[in-house]
Design a protein around this nucleic acid. Structure first.
Lengths: 336, 336
DNA sequence: TTGTAAGCGTTATCAA
DNA sequence: TTGATAACGCTTACAA
């Protein structure tokens, strides 16, 4: 491994001068610079990151902390973060916070080698715990969750208005009797979406009856089970809003297996717009969750936070969900 | 940030002793060890990874180099690698080799901070280039590709026998007229699978006619286009084998849109077993690609390679595809 | 069993 | 415009 010292020796200059050439800092004579630069190129010198980090200069690492990488949702998130980080010449570390690895461990382990920039996705910790983490880490950005105390560090989706938008779309297509298949996880997302949906219909004088709201694990099976429950109870509805595409597709398939036509008899909407929404039959109408873009944004924000005074960033970082209309919702009236 | 020196000072011992306690190396008196350990715990000491890597020349990092992380396939791969690496107390870096970032850059950038373990997924470089990379990096493992010169560093799937297995399944269910929707990428996987398929049918005295073999981009659209081409040409077949699940589902949907019943009139098989295979209608019968397991295996192998003499590992690392039977293939005769 | 001292590759400080 | 020198936190001969 070729080092600064070796270059310096061959060039007949000091290591300091070589360092200056490499980093473009300080004054270096033109002849000298050219000679050293040529050596650097010819010998294929690469700086040792560990030494650099140790010597005090920041290391330009960005760490991703998420529950896992298998699901397409987190994969897209990681992709967005990673692309933006690499654009900004940062190296990307991933630190899963799964059962063996707590979030605190994951974050600390990132800190251990001077990883100042962290994008965290977590729904388990309490607000206070997250705030504590944020205070300890200037470059920490929270994604997919909003905590008002650290609003300028949160990149999140307005779930409530996403719920309203879904409700509006159904209403404008003539749907008045709605069922909901929601996630049973005790986090704010399902509540917020449900709130938005209810809010919209309420304003139209329509109440969604509680028997038409099912809670289940946000998985294919959860969608299947909920659909069957609705069908068996003979619930009265023309459209279902599911918590995510996975549940929606599970439900859609189950309804069809039970003999219902989708969307002719039952319309279905999802959330997220992952790949399965474009491969199901019928194709799923859904509220797109711009997770890749949000990942990119979060990475940039984190890097910005470590370069600037955190307090100087006061804008909010709220993303909006957009409707992706496909085939799974029936037009009962011409939408206005 | 609390350092070894500070602990040493407070404990009234030398930094060396503290280091010994931390690493469990060398002899340390019992009293001394307890005292130091308590301090370490109480003060929440965490070793500086950069310093450790610098001083010790080893860092216990594992790097993943893949084209991207968005697709569920790579996501699962990354997940497998990451889980195994974390189990082995390694830190995981991801280094995408996308357009801006060549593979060489990605690998070198991993080396820059002493990342000895690398799992590489690449189909673009030539064999020679990969071999060069492998020679330069003792801990490099190649996944999803076989190069005989570095056979003990390759973790790969036997695509040829996977093709045979798919063919056998169709044959045993009575299918004699086959169409193939293949990837048009100039890599070995599509060729090997096609070879396996042809080999099996050939042994049964059946030739697959060239007009029934379509090549397209391995995407949803590629599957759609290929299906339409087959249909428009009035090709004569009862079953289609697609290069992957994405193409298979695209084709399956297009066939149905064109009025064909799947599997009653046309049977479809895929490869990979990604999520969409369980959400399509009908559910897709496919050859499972155990990519998560292969990722885990590759990570372990890489770590083993840096601990042992590489040459001492002589076994091959070949995985087999397994059939996942769902609904998209019609039983024309009772399979034996 | 414990400690001293050198060194890993780099950058920062200060002097020349 | 350059160069010594110290320092970053840790490991590891070697010495005691």
């Amino acid at each position: 491994m070729i080092t600064i010292k070796e270059i310096a020796k061959i060039a007949g200059v000091s290591a300091t001068t070589v360092s200056r050439v490499i980093n473009g800092r300080g004054k270096v004579g033109d002849k000298c610079r050219k000679k050293v630069q040529k050596l650097i190129d010819d010998l294929g010198y690469r700086p040792n990151i560990n030494a650099r980090a140790l010597a005090g200069q920041k290391a330009d690492f960005l760490g991703i902390v998420t529950p896992n990488f298998s699901s397409p949702f987190y994969g897209n998130l990681a992709s967005g973060i990673s692309d933006a980080a690499i654009d900004a010449k940062h190296r990307v570390m991933m630190s899963n916070s799964n059962k063996t690895n707590t979030v605190f461990d994951a974050v600390e382990s990132l800190r251990d080698f001077g990883c100042d920039n962290i994008v965290l996705h977590n729904k388990d910790l309490s607000d206070d715990e997250i705030i504590k983490l944020a205070e300890e880490n200037q470059g920490l950005v929270l994604i997919n969750r909003f905590i008002s105390e650290i609003a300028n560090r949160c990149v999140w989706l307005d779930n409530c208005s996403a719920g309203r938008a879904a409700a509006e779309f159904l209403y404008k297509n003539g749907h008045r009797k709605i069922a909901i298949i929601n996630s049973d996880r005790n986090i704010s997302d399902p509540f917020d979406r449900l709130f938005g949906i209810k809010q919209y219909f309420s304003a139209k004088g329509i109440e969604i009856i509680n028997d038409n709201i099912k809670y289940a694990v946000p998985s294919l099976q959860g969608g299947i089970d909920s659909a069957r429950a609705l069908a068996e109870e003979g619930a009265d509805f023309t459209a279902v809003i599911a918590y995510n595409d996975t549940m929606a597709v599970g439900a859609m398939n189950e309804f069809q297996n039970l003999g219902f036509k989708v969307p002719e008899q039952i319309s279905v909407m999802g959330f997220d717009d992952i790949l399965i929404a474009s491969t199901s039959r019928p194709f799923l109408t859904t509220m797109r969750y711009p997770i890749y873009d949000m990942g990119q944004y979060a990475a940039k924000l984190s890097i910005q936070l470590t370069k600037t005074e955190a307090s100087s960033i006061n804008q909010s970082h709220q993303f909006m969900s957009t409707l992706v209309e496909r085939q799974s919702v029936k037009k009962m009236i011409e939408s206005s």
